[in-house]
Design a binder for these strands. Structure first.
Length: 436
DNA sequence: TCTGGGGTCCTAGGACCC
DNA sequence: TCTGGGGTCCTAGGACCC
């Protein structure tokens, strides 16, 4: 059996280009939330030496002539195109294991020639059916498939497909690849390895098992085995239900008033609860964290996290929002300008059978009501749009409530997105117009 | 002026048990 | 005065990934 990896090229930029073909061949970047950092770059932008993660306000230093087109991130669009790309792939291979929004492992157990033929035809079909350019690597293990995919992406001659499918190719690839470019070798461990005289993937492979274990522990050992062709990265880790769920944001404007912060945290909690229900789980712990602006050394620095244990595992909007609010109030400190906050759910378990508390006085009819209410909220919001129905605590506090309508959650207002593109594929109002 | 968000796994150390 | 050996579980922090 062979592993494949399909990786979308410069995914967010490619999504924007699907509906802006005029930007083909031009430098384009996509920004993180709040238009903070550059998180996706076209090849042309990479050629201009614009680094990944560059703060947007520093772009001018690298682009004095203003040639670069920048987009705010449009996750609704990217999620939809990702779904399309994944479904095209799923039709062509045995099993798919989505790894991130723009990457997917897959297996092919057809005979060798057949596997090669199928995998090599993926890029053209995905491009034709979705407009997204992808690269594909094929090899005996996931780590090697990653490596093959790097080659496919890096060298034009490969036509977006590369297989490491013979001992000679493997030996050559290992010699060519620098250790820091191997999946699983990060910034910190590369220093340890370089100090030990190891610089290429081949150097690493030729080390003894004992030395690798001593230098890097069992994580490094896994990578070592994978490079030697031994399947060691589990597949279920790629597809299982999440063990923690987090929603957090940095704010465009810093927040000082607890009454401004509370509805924001309520919204994060509510979003977490929706994600939790979507995967059919319940959570035991609700954590809330807040932090000041670490870049502003002139201001008071403070950050804290509070873990609130639920008396009983729950996926209810009401339970989770309430716990988050309690947590926030316990760590909120006056006089701090907050830049970021978030909610994390953990202690996650399947929805049923549920572990009931021995001591809590469970009112079953109450629990049942909350559950039904949550499901109803999901149904309405699923059909009518996120946050159409929400709890009162998710609304900003209004001093003189004159009945003025407030339909947008406050945290969306405190988010900078000056360069957002239309939701071409998910909103009728944004559907593309064609002049004839 | 402006600096992202969401995950996973491992390790070390402490509390506790027999 | 002398104070072993072998476990488990939990947590915080670090490293990695996209």
């Amino acid at each position: 059996m062979l592993y494949g990896l399909m990786d979308c090229n410069n995914f967010f930029v490619s999504c924007e280009r699907v509906f802006r073909p005029d930007l083909e061949g031009k430098p384009v970047v996509v920004l993180s939330n709040n238009d903070g950092c550059i998180v996706s770059r076209s090849n042309e932008a990479k050629e201009m030496a614009i680094p990944m993660g560059l703060p947007f306000f520093q772009l001018r230093d690298h682009d004095p002539l203003g040639q670069v087109t920048a987009f705010s991130s449009n996750y609704v669009l990217y999620a939809d195109l990702s779904k399309r790309v994944m479904s095209v792939l799923a039709d062509m291979v045995c099993e798919t294991m989505p790894y991130s929004i723009d990457e997917c492992f897959f297996t092919l157990d057809a005979s060798h020639g057949k596997a090669y033929e199928i995998a090599s035809s993926i890029p053209a079909r995905v491009r034709k059916w979705t407009g997204i350019p992808v690269s594909v690597g094929l090899a005996p293990t996931k780590t090697l498939a990653k490596m093959a995919c790097r080659f496919a992406k890096k060298y034009k001659g490969y036509n977006n497909f590369c297989a490491i499918d013979s001992a000679e190719k493997l030996a050559k690839a290992l010699r060519l690849v620098k250790l820091e470019d191997v999946w699983g070798i990060g910034r910190r461990t590369i220093k340890t390895l370089n100090k030990a005289g190891l610089f290429t993937a081949a150097d690493f492979c030729n080390s003894s098992e004992g030395q690798v274990r001593k230098l890097l522990g069992i994580n490094g050992l896994r990578t070592w085995k994978e490079l030697r062709g031994e399947d060691s990265v589990k597949s279920d880790s790629v597809t299982d239900a999440k063990q923690s769920i987090c929603t957090s944001r940095s704010f465009a404007e810093m927040v000082t008033d607890v009454e401004d912060l509370r509805p924001m945290v309520a919204n994060f909690a509510s979003q977490c609860a929706s994600k939790l229900r979507a995967q059919g789980s319940v959570a035991n712990i609700v954590s809330v964290f807040v932090s000041s602006n670490a870049y502003r050394e002139d201001l008071q620095q403070y950050s804290n996290i509070c873990n609130v244990a639920l008396s009983e595992a729950s996926a209810s909007q009401i339970d989770i929002v309430r716990a988050a609010d309690r947590g926030l109030l316990s760590i909120f400190r006056k006089g701090v300008a907050y830049k970021k906050a978030g909610v994390i759910l953990s202690g996650i378990a399947p929805e049923a059978p549920r572990q009931l508390s021995l001591f809590a006085q469970t009112d079953f009819s109450q629990a049942e009501k909350k559950e039904r209410l949550s499901k109803l909220i999901d149904k309405i919001n699923g059909a009518k749009g996120m946050n159409k129905v929400h709890l009162a605590s998710q609304m900003p506090h209004i001093e003189n409530n004159d009945g003025k309508e407030e339909t947008t959650a406050i945290f969306l207002n405190n988010l900078r997105r000056d360069h957002i593109s239309p939701r071409y594929t998910t909103d009728w109002n944004d559907i593309i117009r064609v002049k004839s």
